[in-house]
Design a protein around this nucleic acid. Structure first.
Lengths: 181, 181
DNA sequence: ACCACATGTGCGCTATAACGCACAAGAGGA
DNA sequence: TCCTCTTGTGCGTTATAGCGCACATGTGGT
């Protein structure tokens, strides 16, 4: 999963096409010297050049880097706990999937604990479903109260926040990022 | 579609975490100056540094390079109960949104009640998160047991089914339809 | 007001990605 | 053999990725 994989991927892609370094250089706009160095692992390309290569082959970027899109839904290693230092602790329920453009977290807030989040990129939508306790969501500058079993969907490209009630709160947090190309 | 998306993704990921550049620099090993330049689109990172960032966030590389399409997030939800004739009764938690291509149901199954579903259209993905009781999901001709608090994601373009345990089951059911654009 | 601390950005420097060009090795052809 | 063409790699230069450090701004505390 390191950048060595890119060397392998590029070698495979070019071998499959049967093209020479010169031809690939011509159709991608990347010098054949650089292509050779990347294949030999002597250079770590920037994403800009990687993009040029992928575009030249008319392939998605994912075809050159590892991280296959196929996932085993029962792979427990994907369902780990991620702790943001000095921030909240979340458990990944459904890991980010580039095809769906969505991920789901399980969040536990201590009594009266709050978490503020800055605006995300435009087009990001969040969904919150309260599992236990009571929760307030800051949306459009207004705190919306939610009880267990209730859900709220809101645009996340504005500042927003979460605030647990006196008995704490557990909730699911789905992020929708839009679709992958 | 271009590498500018990486700036968006990184901004988004960091905003979601609520962390400062310094904290991210500390946990990724990438200087905060470089992180800032990447976010502002003033620098095109190498895959080596991109990898360090993804690893620091415990995310796959695709979470950072996946191209995102800007969308208008529509709002507001109608919470109603829909009964499928001769089938199970579900409550709409998040109604279908053509922009997201997703909808979420709240399903209650009586003890030992089962529900079989024919194959959906290609590209449809379902996610199930068990709220109460025990549930078994028929996936790839195999019944996968789930307990309260567990989730399962699976492709729904194959026949699948749900079967509650002896004490019944309540679960959330998210449907992701293929990208509309 | 003042201070202490954290935030994000700008500056100068070094490491290296990326280029154009030239070269050595091999394959055919006459 | 000699020539020509193409293969991939090495060299010297330029562009820039990446670093550490310092600065301007902001925010909360006393």
């Amino acid at each position: 999963m390191t950048q060595d994989d890119i060397t392998l991927k590029l070698r495979d892609v070019r071998a499959a096409s049967g093209l020479s370094l010169s031809k690939v250089a011509e159709m991608t706009g990347v010098s054949k010297a650089m292509l050779g160095q990347i294949e030999r692992g002597e250079s770590s390309p920037t994403i800009a050049t990687l993009w040029k290569i992928a575009k030249g082959f008319q392939l998605p970027l994912s075809a050159l880097i590892g991280s296959s899109v196929l996932r085993d839904p029962t792979d427990e290693s994907l369902f780990r706990t991620v702790t943001f230092p000095g921030s909240i602790e979340v458990k990944i329920v459904f890991p980010y999937d580039p095809v769906l453009g969505a991920e789901t977290f399980h969040v536990d807030l201590a009594p009266n604990q709050s978490h503020e989040s800055a605006a995300h990129a435009a087009g990001v939508t969040e969904e919150v479903f309260v599992l236990n306790g009571s929760l307030e969501i800051l949306r459009d500058g207004e705190w919306v109260p939610l009880q267990s079993g209730q859900g709220l969907r809101f645009a996340a490209d504005l500042p927003h926040g979460y605030r647990a009630g006196p008995q704490g709160a557990a909730f699911l947090n789905m992020h929708h990022y839009g679709q992958a190309g």
